[in-house]
Amino acid sequence: MSIPSVQTPFKRFISEYVERKTAVFAFLLLVFVLLTAFLGPFLTMQNPYDLAQITIMESGLAPGSESIDGNTFWLGTDDQGRDLVSAIVFGLRISIMVGIISGVLAVVIGTSVGIVSAYVGGRIDNLIMRVVDLFLGFPSFLIALICLAVLGRGADKVVLALVLSQWANFARIVRGVAIAEREKEYMDAARGLALPKSRIIFRHLLPNCLAPLIVVATMNVAFSITLEASLSFLGVGLPITQPSLGLLIANGYEYILTGKYWLSFYPGLSLLITVASINLVADRMRDVLNPRMKK
């Protein structure tokens, strides 16, 4: 930049973000994945869980085989004659929904707890942070596993387990930022205006604490998706009526020794592409937003 031009922070963010080609590619990939997940049921050749649309005659076909009515099973079929592409699209939908819902809930709950804790301070802050420490002392996988061991399987329970295993992270981060922000002059001004406490916290303090959260929250969605897939793979996550990618892979696991590799390979590849694109986007965002990486 030879001429210093006036840029909004958002525009500057975009122009720096696109400097790296892999990051742009990852972003496009992510858009594609999300579109597939949301529009999926309108695009696939069949609803893989509608028994009227699948036939046992077409079971266990290799990728690229042709179906009876002339379509192509690009990724093959499973033992019940389900088109794997359709199954993956439906599974992706469930995985992404669970990931986003639990990711957002964890951020909202963690942020609220952290910011209130920091603003109120004193004994309540101390108590809340003890609880946060207790949660952070254990790996999220273990917390989620314990929750599901107690609660049983089910989509709502998986979301609850994921939220419980993640919220403390956000509470800790937000509290740290909020404590630093609390002492700044605009907060004194807000207090001086005798604004109600809730308004000070949520309208003045909160927006200034969000920046460090963006990257962590984005990565958290990816982590939630992986965590859900792992738990479902182990048979303690989603029930078979909600076949996420993790369950598809678990299904394919049974056929791995019989040579039907595609049943576990492609669902896993889709999972990898989803998670990797989110992580790559988040990683570039961190580089752009981190002032320490500036040359």
Partner: peptide, 10 residues
């Protein structure tokens, strides 16, 4: 980003 269990299978 690699899902541990899937890598194990592969």
């Amino acid at each position: 980003s690699l899902p541990t269990f899937w890598v194990g299978l592969m």
